[in-house]
Design a protein around this nucleic acid. Structure first.
Lengths: 104, 104
DNA sequence: CACATATATAAAGAAACTCTTATATATCAA
DNA sequence: TTGATATATAAGAGTTTCTTTATATATGTG
């Protein structure tokens, strides 16, 4: 489960989430795990953009890529899965993070 | 209570929240409502920046400014209060918004 | 071999965001 | 009338984000 323990971490995650395309990617991966190339086609994105965005989503821990062997052609591919996350944005939570000093 | 009903709205709110100074402002206002000038001094910000950020926080509905008459000097000032909000970022919530078509 | 699939990365311009400085107005106190 | 308080807005520089185009590599198919 994804946890946030500093303002810095929260900021990075919110920055990644505050983009309509990346939200679309999350919604799509919630339906089913997918590969970068297939996802790009499905959402009408260029592959480089999809790759970049998947990378940024992975960096903040919202998705996870794993090398899997395709049954069809035996080639290794990276399958991206959505991680289970629940971030509750409330005044209390934000205050707690801000007042915990910035580090952690 | 603050509610989010579209991807657009979510995106705007997350963009405003994904900034350490604006998170600090929220944490400060959670402790007590305050005026722009006093808040700027307290957090070590320039007044224009504090004003700008309070405005953006107000635009997405996270805080609320109201003209109040100061008891001390009888001058009208704008007091900013934190609104009660609870935004739960989960795969389900994001999917719901994305699949609701973008409008609403 | 040319083409589609599949991944990865770099370069570059456009757009947006960040933040300060400057300007303006108004009140109150020393 | 000078200085601190208080609000508001604009202009501009600097930084970051956004997104495409280009380049590279590798595999499998017609």
């Amino acid at each position: 489960m994804v946890t946030i323990e500093s303002v810095d971490e929260l900021e990075r995650m919110l920055k990644v989430l505050s983009n309509p395309i990346r939200l679309k990617i999350i919604a799509s991966l919630q339906g089913q795990p997918n590969h970068a190339y297939a996802l790009a086609k499905q959402l009408g994105l260029s592959y480089p953009l999809a790759h970049l965005y998947l990378e940024s989503l992975e960096h903040v821990g919202l998705i996870e890529g794993s090398r899997v062997l395709s049954i069809e052609d035996e080639r290794e591919r990276i399958l991206y899965r959505l991680k289970d996350f629940r971030v509750e944005l409330t005044p209390e939570f934000i205050s707690k993070l801000v007042n915990s000093g910035g580090h952690n």
